[in-house]
Simulated assay, not measured.
Amino acid sequence: MKKLFSFLFMLAFSTVVISQESMTFQADITNKNGDVIYIKQGNTTLQEIKVDSKGVFKATFPVKEGMYQLFDGVEYGRLFLKNGYDLKMTMDASAFDETIKFKGKGAKENNYMAEAALLEEKFNYENLLAAEEEVFKKGVEEKKKADFERLDKAELDPVFVSTYKKELEMNFVGLQQYYTKIAANRKLNSSKAPTFDYENHKGGKTSLESMKGKYVYIDVWATWCGPCRAEIPFLKAAEEKYHGKNIEFVSISVDVDKDHEKWKTFVTDKALGGTQLYADKNWNSDFITAFGINSIPRFILLDPNGIIVDADAKRPSNPKLLEQLDSLLK
């Protein structure tokens, strides 16, 4: 009996040790995007979890306490993980953010982040970024106060709260920087656009002056840019919608010199429409630097006299672009 007691004690003790040095994660995903999900931190994959015979993703693994991302195909959500957690997630991948729910140890923190993500989606950042500086600052302070108060009232894990507050602070700094950039772009509106004379994919060169008399919608992009490529179907649709109208769609590549042939091949293979140009000095081209472009895609709208209508125009995927073009081209 004594030996049996000793054995049971050791077994119980070993179970406690394992649970404290690892965690269990389980996901029951309806309409999953694949048979493998990934838990990552930045570019590092912490865990690759394959679906089992019951259609459930489950794994036990050690983890360094902190924030992670869960990927199901291209969709992803955020996780807060630590050893000792026994976290169970349910989700419908066809409505990813709206359906994420957690149960088990660690659920409270992760449900908080899921709910916060939905609140962020509903927040009208577009109106805030379009506001005058004083209104913008007041709006940011009000949002910051509300976010921190909601976090403090939730009674969550102290490490989670500390980590999440640091992220919120960084997000607000980033928002201010983005606003400053947008405000600088707005100052360019109603001024004369700088000119260009770039290589045309069809041969020869094309200048901005050659398009005088037409509205010009410019897409600054590169072949390696994922977000740029994501806009291509929407850009093609806009070109088709306004075919024959008084507007020229121009794409300016800032691909570096070594990728010149890659650009030529990409334009051909993807059957890109509009006027396809190649910037003479890439990021250092006069036209690019005049608009302070350091990230892409970037869209610019000019009027028939070469005056800047919008130095930071809406993307083709944004329905408001079509509303704006409809009003100009009616």
Results as ranks from 00 to 15, higher is better:
residue 264 K to W: 00
residue 235 L to W: 05
residue 241 K to L: 09
residue 263 W to S: 00
residue 254 V to Y: 06
residue 251 S to Y: 01
residue 242 Y to S: 09
residue 247 I to L: 06
residue 261 E to S: 11
residue 255 D to I: 13
residue 251 S to C: 03
residue 256 V to M: 15
residue 257 D to V: 09
residue 241 K to F: 08
residue 245 K to R: 15
residue 236 K to Q: 12
residue 258 K to Y: 12
residue 240 E to D: 14
residue 261 E to A: 13
residue 242 Y to I: 08
residue 236 K to L: 08
residue 253 S to L: 07
residue 239 E to Q: 15
residue 262 K to L: 04
residue 255 D to A: 11
residue 249 F to G: 03
residue 254 V to D: 02
residue 242 Y to Q: 05
residue 253 S to E: 06
residue 260 H to G: 09
residue 247 I to H: 04
residue 243 H to D: 15
residue 241 K to C: 08
residue 244 G to W: 05
residue 258 K to H: 12
residue 262 K to F: 01
residue 259 D to H: 09
residue 255 D to Q: 10
residue 237 A to P: 10
residue 240 E to M: 10
residue 251 S to E: 04
residue 238 A to H: 13
residue 255 D to T: 10
residue 252 I to Q: 03
residue 252 I to G: 02
residue 237 A to D: 14
residue 262 K to Y: 03
residue 251 S to A: 07
residue 258 K to E: 14
residue 259 D to F: 11
residue 257 D to L: 12
residue 249 F to H: 04
residue 253 S to C: 06
residue 240 E to T: 15
residue 260 H to Y: 15
residue 240 E to L: 12
residue 236 K to G: 05
residue 262 K to M: 04
residue 243 H to A: 15
residue 254 V to T: 05
residue 258 K to N: 08
residue 248 E to Y: 08
residue 260 H to W: 13
residue 258 K to D: 10
